[in-house]
Amino acid sequence: MKVCVCVKHIPDPTMQMVVDPGTKRLIRDRGQSILDPSDEFSVETALKLVEEHGGETVAISMGPDGADDALRRAMAMGIDRATLIIDDALAGSDVVSTARALAAVLKNEQPDLVICATESTDAYTGMVPGTLAELLDLPLVSFARSVTVDGSSISAQQDTESGYRTVQAALPALLTVTASIAEPRYPSFKGMMQAKKKQLERIDVAALGLDASSVGEAGAREKVLAVEQVHQEKQVRTVVDDGSGDSVVEIVAFLKSIQVV
């Protein structure tokens, strides 16, 4: 089977997000950028499925220069090859325009299964996968905590508000996975060396046959009107507990002051 994973290169998630007041876009070049940790679960799932059923794995990303790193990381984990959609015209993409670009590559690849994370760590709209499934006319199996492929069908346990449900669809399909699906493997030294030699294709809007007015900022329907930094300086009262547990007196006094007890 052929499995494509959509992965994203994101700014270090441990750093506070900063938006450029001029372009009103997320500043993406602060600190180190990494393969979105949520995408490691998709990569792991793809690798496991292909180890079991045979086939090929492809990682796809849309992003600026530097996003190669995320794809190399995915290949170091074991993905066979990668495609980076890269074009200045793609800056400022929203959900629909991102999905259009990814869909164009996926239409050429014709995979049996597309895997995305349920949501990205930076944008966390969680809207791209479902929109992509619609554009590709694929069934969407979302929020999977476990997955099995059996011949021409896929079944998954899907998280729900109050537990989970088992769902089933025919392949080809689009799957979104949560962090409970599998523990992502760590790239081995050999894997990292091999990743350097694996194929990484760079492709632009024209090569995809996309109309430049339908992607990037030109195609985006969402417009940021204003961005504001709100720093709520809280009045913290700090009490040091020396190990005796005496700070409990302070907590009880606080709970009384807010009428909890």
């Binding site: 999905a99 929109t131 499934a133 969407l140």
Partner: peptide
């Protein structure tokens, strides 16, 4: 989320999450 995202794909409209 699933219904909403598919709808966005069908209508090709903007979505705010």
């Amino acid at each position: 989320r699933d219904v909403q995202a598919r709808l966005v794909g069908k209508l090709g409209v903007g979505v705010i999450a």
